[in-house]
Amino acid sequence: MKIKKDEVGWLLLFIAPTLILFTLFFILPILFLLASSFTNWDGIDAEFVGFENYIKLFNKKSFVRAITNNLYWCITAALITVPLGLIIALLLSHRSRGWKVFRTVLFVPQVVSSAAIAMLWAAVFNAEYGLLNYILDNIGLSDYKNHNWLGNVRTANAALIGFSLCYVGYFMVIMLAKTASISEDYYDAAKIDGASQIQKDFYITAPLIKSTFFLCIILAVIFNLRQFEYVYLMTAGGPANKTQVLVVYIWNELTVQRLGRGSAAGVIMIALGAMLLLLLRRILKSETYN
Protein backbone atom coordinates (compact mmCIF):
# COMPACT_ATOMS: atom_id res chain seq x y z
CA MET A 1 0.00 0.00 0.00
CA LYS A 2 1.36 3.40 -0.91
CA ILE A 3 1.97 5.48 2.14
CA LYS A 4 -0.14 8.64 2.58
CA LYS A 5 1.58 11.79 3.70
CA ASP A 6 -0.33 12.08 6.95
CA GLU A 7 0.67 8.52 7.86
CA VAL A 8 4.43 8.91 7.48
CA GLY A 9 4.70 9.81 11.15
CA TRP A 10 2.95 6.62 12.18
CA LEU A 11 5.13 4.57 9.87
CA LEU A 12 8.29 5.97 11.40
CA LEU A 13 6.90 5.48 14.87
CA PHE A 14 6.21 1.82 14.11
CA ILE A 15 9.72 1.23 12.84
CA ALA A 16 11.43 3.26 15.57
CA PRO A 17 11.56 0.77 18.48
CA THR A 18 13.05 -1.99 16.34
CA LEU A 19 15.46 0.39 14.69
CA ILE A 20 16.65 1.87 17.99
CA LEU A 21 17.25 -1.52 19.59
CA PHE A 22 18.82 -2.79 16.39
CA THR A 23 21.21 0.14 16.31
CA LEU A 24 22.14 -0.34 19.94
CA PHE A 25 22.59 -4.09 19.95
CA PHE A 26 23.63 -4.85 16.39
CA ILE A 27 24.99 -1.87 14.49
CA LEU A 28 27.13 -0.42 17.28
CA PRO A 29 28.65 -3.77 18.31
CA ILE A 30 29.37 -4.60 14.66
CA LEU A 31 31.11 -1.27 14.15
CA PHE A 32 33.09 -2.05 17.28
CA LEU A 33 33.89 -5.50 15.88
CA LEU A 34 35.03 -3.95 12.63
CA ALA A 35 37.21 -1.36 14.36
CA SER A 36 38.86 -3.83 16.71
CA SER A 37 39.47 -6.33 13.90
CA PHE A 38 42.25 -4.08 12.62
CA THR A 39 44.03 -4.09 15.97
CA ASN A 40 45.89 -6.59 18.07
CA TRP A 41 43.61 -5.85 21.03
CA ASP A 42 43.97 -8.35 23.86
CA GLY A 43 41.65 -6.70 26.36
CA ILE A 44 44.29 -4.28 27.58
CA ASP A 45 46.38 -2.83 24.78
CA ALA A 46 45.36 -2.19 21.21
CA GLU A 47 47.57 -1.20 18.32
CA PHE A 48 46.54 -0.73 14.73
CA VAL A 49 47.85 -3.65 12.70
CA GLY A 50 46.04 -3.19 9.40
CA PHE A 51 44.93 -6.38 7.71
CA GLU A 52 47.29 -8.62 9.66
CA ASN A 53 44.48 -10.44 11.49
CA TYR A 54 42.69 -11.18 8.24
CA ILE A 55 45.83 -12.39 6.50
CA LYS A 56 46.76 -14.62 9.44
CA LEU A 57 43.28 -16.10 9.58
CA PHE A 58 43.22 -17.07 5.94
CA ASN A 59 46.62 -18.66 6.34
CA LYS A 60 45.35 -20.90 9.13
CA LYS A 61 44.31 -24.34 7.98
CA SER A 62 41.89 -24.69 10.87
CA PHE A 63 40.13 -21.44 9.98
CA VAL A 64 39.68 -22.37 6.33
CA ARG A 65 38.49 -25.75 7.54
CA ALA A 66 35.93 -23.97 9.72
CA ILE A 67 34.56 -22.11 6.71
CA THR A 68 34.22 -25.24 4.60
CA ASN A 69 32.59 -27.09 7.49
CA ASN A 70 30.12 -24.26 7.91
CA LEU A 71 29.24 -24.42 4.23
CA TYR A 72 28.76 -28.17 4.61
CA TRP A 73 26.36 -27.50 7.48
CA CYS A 74 24.50 -24.88 5.45
CA ILE A 75 24.08 -27.15 2.44
CA THR A 76 22.79 -30.08 4.48
CA ALA A 77 20.41 -27.70 6.25
CA ALA A 78 18.96 -26.51 2.95
CA LEU A 79 18.87 -29.92 1.28
CA ILE A 80 17.98 -32.23 4.14
CA THR A 81 16.76 -30.56 7.32
CA VAL A 82 14.24 -28.13 5.86
CA PRO A 83 12.79 -30.51 3.22
CA LEU A 84 12.34 -33.08 5.99
CA GLY A 85 10.59 -30.44 8.04
CA LEU A 86 8.35 -29.70 5.07
CA ILE A 87 7.39 -33.35 4.63
CA ILE A 88 6.51 -33.69 8.29
CA ALA A 89 4.59 -30.41 8.26
CA LEU A 90 2.58 -31.59 5.22
CA LEU A 91 1.82 -34.89 6.90
CA LEU A 92 0.78 -33.25 10.16
CA SER A 93 -1.33 -30.70 8.31
CA HIS A 94 -3.81 -33.52 7.57
CA ARG A 95 -4.73 -33.16 11.21
CA SER A 96 -5.22 -36.86 11.65
CA ARG A 97 -5.74 -38.18 15.13
CA GLY A 98 -3.11 -37.03 17.63
CA TRP A 99 -1.42 -34.49 15.37
CA LYS A 100 -1.18 -31.94 18.15
CA VAL A 101 0.63 -34.41 20.34
CA PHE A 102 3.11 -35.20 17.56
CA ARG A 103 3.68 -31.51 16.93
CA THR A 104 4.49 -30.98 20.60
CA VAL A 105 6.67 -34.05 20.85
CA LEU A 106 8.68 -33.10 17.76
CA PHE A 107 9.27 -29.71 19.31
CA VAL A 108 10.56 -31.11 22.62
CA PRO A 109 14.29 -31.18 21.67
CA GLN A 110 14.04 -27.43 21.13
CA VAL A 111 13.31 -26.75 24.77
CA VAL A 112 15.72 -29.22 26.36
CA SER A 113 18.99 -27.67 27.49
CA SER A 114 21.46 -28.43 24.71
CA ALA A 115 24.14 -29.34 27.24
CA ALA A 116 22.02 -32.31 28.32
CA ILE A 117 21.11 -33.37 24.77
CA ALA A 118 24.73 -33.12 23.68
CA MET A 119 25.74 -35.34 26.56
CA LEU A 120 23.20 -37.96 25.56
CA TRP A 121 24.28 -38.01 21.93
CA ALA A 122 27.94 -38.12 22.86
CA ALA A 123 27.00 -41.22 24.87
CA VAL A 124 25.05 -42.67 21.92
CA PHE A 125 28.12 -42.25 19.69
CA ASN A 126 30.56 -43.47 22.36
CA ALA A 127 32.89 -46.24 21.20
CA GLU A 128 32.93 -48.28 24.42
CA TYR A 129 29.33 -48.39 25.55
CA GLY A 130 27.53 -46.36 22.85
CA LEU A 131 24.00 -47.28 21.91
CA LEU A 132 24.61 -46.88 18.19
CA ASN A 133 27.43 -49.43 18.12
CA TYR A 134 25.34 -51.76 20.26
CA ILE A 135 22.47 -51.63 17.77
CA LEU A 136 24.77 -51.99 14.75
CA ASP A 137 26.51 -54.92 16.39
CA ASN A 138 23.18 -56.63 17.06
CA ILE A 139 21.99 -56.28 13.48
CA GLY A 140 25.20 -57.90 12.27
CA LEU A 141 27.38 -54.90 11.43
CA SER A 142 30.11 -55.96 13.82
CA ASP A 143 32.72 -53.86 11.95
CA TYR A 144 31.45 -51.00 14.03
CA LYS A 145 31.91 -52.69 17.37
CA ASN A 146 34.39 -50.15 18.69
CA HIS A 147 33.93 -47.39 16.18
CA ASN A 148 34.49 -43.94 17.69
CA TRP A 149 31.95 -41.90 15.75
CA LEU A 150 32.83 -38.44 17.01
CA GLY A 151 36.54 -39.19 17.29
CA ASN A 152 36.97 -40.40 13.72
CA VAL A 153 37.82 -38.01 10.93
CA ARG A 154 35.49 -39.72 8.47
CA THR A 155 32.41 -39.89 10.65
CA ALA A 156 32.68 -36.94 13.06
CA ASN A 157 30.91 -34.36 10.86
CA ALA A 158 28.30 -36.83 9.68
CA ALA A 159 27.54 -37.86 13.25
CA LEU A 160 27.14 -34.23 14.28
CA ILE A 161 24.75 -33.55 11.44
CA GLY A 162 22.83 -36.74 12.09
CA PHE A 163 22.36 -35.57 15.64
CA SER A 164 21.28 -32.10 14.52
CA LEU A 165 18.37 -33.64 12.62
CA CYS A 166 16.52 -34.08 15.89
CA TYR A 167 15.95 -30.31 15.70
CA VAL A 168 13.90 -30.62 12.53
CA GLY A 169 10.83 -29.65 14.59
CA TYR A 170 11.82 -25.98 14.54
CA PHE A 171 11.16 -25.54 10.84
CA MET A 172 8.27 -27.96 10.85
CA VAL A 173 6.45 -25.72 13.32
CA ILE A 174 6.89 -22.61 11.15
CA MET A 175 5.58 -24.34 8.03
CA LEU A 176 2.77 -26.03 9.93
CA ALA A 177 1.65 -22.66 11.25
CA LYS A 178 1.49 -21.39 7.69
CA THR A 179 -0.80 -24.25 6.62
CA ALA A 180 -3.20 -23.04 9.29
CA SER A 181 -3.86 -19.92 7.25
CA ILE A 182 -4.87 -21.83 4.11
CA SER A 183 -8.56 -21.47 3.48
CA GLU A 184 -10.64 -24.68 3.62
CA ASP A 185 -12.25 -23.67 0.31
CA TYR A 186 -9.23 -24.94 -1.59
CA TYR A 187 -9.56 -28.40 -0.10
CA ASP A 188 -13.33 -28.50 -0.56
CA ALA A 189 -12.87 -27.73 -4.22
CA ALA A 190 -10.21 -30.41 -4.53
CA LYS A 191 -12.46 -32.92 -2.85
CA ILE A 192 -15.14 -32.32 -5.46
CA ASP A 193 -12.54 -32.92 -8.14
CA GLY A 194 -11.70 -36.23 -6.45
CA ALA A 195 -8.12 -35.43 -5.53
CA SER A 196 -6.23 -37.88 -3.35
CA GLN A 197 -4.44 -36.82 -0.19
CA ILE A 198 -1.05 -36.88 -1.83
CA GLN A 199 -2.36 -34.71 -4.66
CA LYS A 200 -3.83 -32.24 -2.18
CA ASP A 201 -0.52 -32.06 -0.34
CA PHE A 202 1.58 -31.50 -3.42
CA TYR A 203 -0.75 -29.42 -5.56
CA ILE A 204 -2.47 -27.29 -2.91
CA THR A 205 -0.64 -27.14 0.42
CA ALA A 206 2.95 -27.22 -0.79
CA PRO A 207 2.62 -24.38 -3.34
CA LEU A 208 0.70 -22.26 -0.85
CA ILE A 209 3.43 -22.49 1.77
CA LYS A 210 6.25 -22.15 -0.73
CA SER A 211 7.27 -18.72 0.54
CA THR A 212 7.44 -20.06 4.09
CA PHE A 213 9.52 -22.97 2.86
CA PHE A 214 12.00 -20.54 1.35
CA LEU A 215 11.98 -18.50 4.52
CA CYS A 216 12.87 -21.64 6.44
CA ILE A 217 15.71 -22.42 4.07
CA ILE A 218 17.14 -18.96 4.60
CA LEU A 219 16.76 -19.26 8.35
CA ALA A 220 18.29 -22.74 8.36
CA VAL A 221 21.27 -21.66 6.30
CA ILE A 222 21.93 -18.69 8.56
CA PHE A 223 21.44 -20.68 11.75
CA ASN A 224 23.93 -23.22 10.52
CA LEU A 225 26.41 -20.54 9.66
CA ARG A 226 26.14 -19.47 13.29
CA GLN A 227 26.41 -23.09 14.40
CA PHE A 228 27.96 -23.12 17.85
CA GLU A 229 26.40 -25.13 20.60
CA TYR A 230 26.25 -28.62 19.09
CA VAL A 231 29.83 -28.50 17.88
CA TYR A 232 31.16 -26.78 20.97
CA LEU A 233 29.49 -29.20 23.34
CA MET A 234 30.14 -32.42 21.43
CA THR A 235 33.55 -32.11 19.79
CA ALA A 236 34.79 -28.55 20.46
CA GLY A 237 36.09 -28.61 16.88
CA GLY A 238 38.12 -31.80 17.29
CA PRO A 239 39.52 -34.24 16.47
CA ALA A 240 42.45 -32.43 14.86
CA ASN A 241 40.26 -29.39 14.05
CA LYS A 242 38.27 -31.55 11.62
CA THR A 243 34.85 -30.41 12.87
CA GLN A 244 35.83 -26.80 13.50
CA VAL A 245 33.19 -24.17 12.72
CA LEU A 246 33.39 -20.39 12.65
CA VAL A 247 31.70 -19.44 15.89
CA VAL A 248 33.61 -22.07 17.88
CA TYR A 249 36.76 -20.67 16.29
CA ILE A 250 35.77 -17.15 17.34
CA TRP A 251 34.96 -18.32 20.85
CA ASN A 252 38.39 -19.93 21.13
CA GLU A 253 40.09 -16.74 19.99
CA LEU A 254 38.21 -14.83 22.69
CA THR A 255 39.18 -17.45 25.27
CA VAL A 256 42.85 -17.06 24.47
CA GLN A 257 42.43 -13.27 24.57
CA ARG A 258 43.20 -12.60 20.94
CA LEU A 259 40.20 -10.33 20.84
CA GLY A 260 41.30 -8.46 17.72
CA ARG A 261 41.64 -11.64 15.72
CA GLY A 262 38.35 -12.94 17.08
CA SER A 263 36.71 -9.74 15.83
CA ALA A 264 38.26 -10.22 12.41
CA ALA A 265 36.87 -13.76 12.27
CA GLY A 266 33.47 -12.34 13.24
CA VAL A 267 33.63 -9.77 10.45
CA ILE A 268 34.56 -12.45 7.92
CA MET A 269 31.63 -14.50 9.11
CA ILE A 270 29.16 -11.65 8.70
CA ALA A 271 30.52 -10.89 5.24
CA LEU A 272 30.26 -14.55 4.26
CA GLY A 273 26.71 -14.65 5.57
CA ALA A 274 25.71 -11.54 3.66
CA MET A 275 27.03 -13.10 0.47
CA LEU A 276 25.13 -16.32 1.15
CA LEU A 277 22.00 -14.31 1.83
CA LEU A 278 22.24 -12.43 -1.47
CA LEU A 279 22.98 -15.66 -3.31
CA LEU A 280 19.97 -17.37 -1.77
CA ARG A 281 17.79 -14.43 -2.69
CA ARG A 282 18.90 -14.85 -6.27
CA ILE A 283 18.30 -18.58 -6.30
CA LEU A 284 14.97 -18.58 -4.55
CA LYS A 285 13.63 -15.37 -6.12
CA SER A 286 10.50 -15.87 -4.13
CA GLU A 287 7.70 -13.54 -3.28
CA THR A 288 9.36 -13.37 0.12
CA TYR A 289 11.34 -10.41 -1.08
CA ASN A 290 9.34 -8.23 -3.37
Binding site: S62, G151, V153, A240, N252, V256
Partner: peptide, 21 residues
Amino acid sequence: GSLAVASEFPQALSALALGDV
Protein backbone atom coordinates in the same frame (compact mmCIF):
# COMPACT_ATOMS: atom_id res chain seq x y z
CA GLY B 1 52.94 -19.23 28.74
CA SER B 2 50.65 -18.95 25.73
CA LEU B 3 46.92 -19.45 25.94
CA ALA B 4 46.76 -20.06 22.21
CA VAL B 5 49.30 -22.90 22.30
CA ALA B 6 47.59 -24.44 25.32
CA SER B 7 44.21 -24.40 23.59
CA GLU B 8 45.66 -26.00 20.43
CA PHE B 9 47.05 -28.91 22.46
CA PRO B 10 43.96 -31.18 22.31
CA GLN B 11 43.78 -30.67 18.53
CA ALA B 12 47.46 -31.53 18.07
CA LEU B 13 47.10 -34.53 20.36
CA SER B 14 44.05 -35.90 18.55
CA ALA B 15 45.79 -35.43 15.21
CA LEU B 16 48.70 -37.43 16.59
CA ALA B 17 46.49 -40.15 18.02
CA LEU B 18 44.65 -40.47 14.71
CA GLY B 19 47.95 -40.87 12.88
CA ASP B 20 47.36 -37.62 10.99
CA VAL B 21 50.66 -36.16 12.11
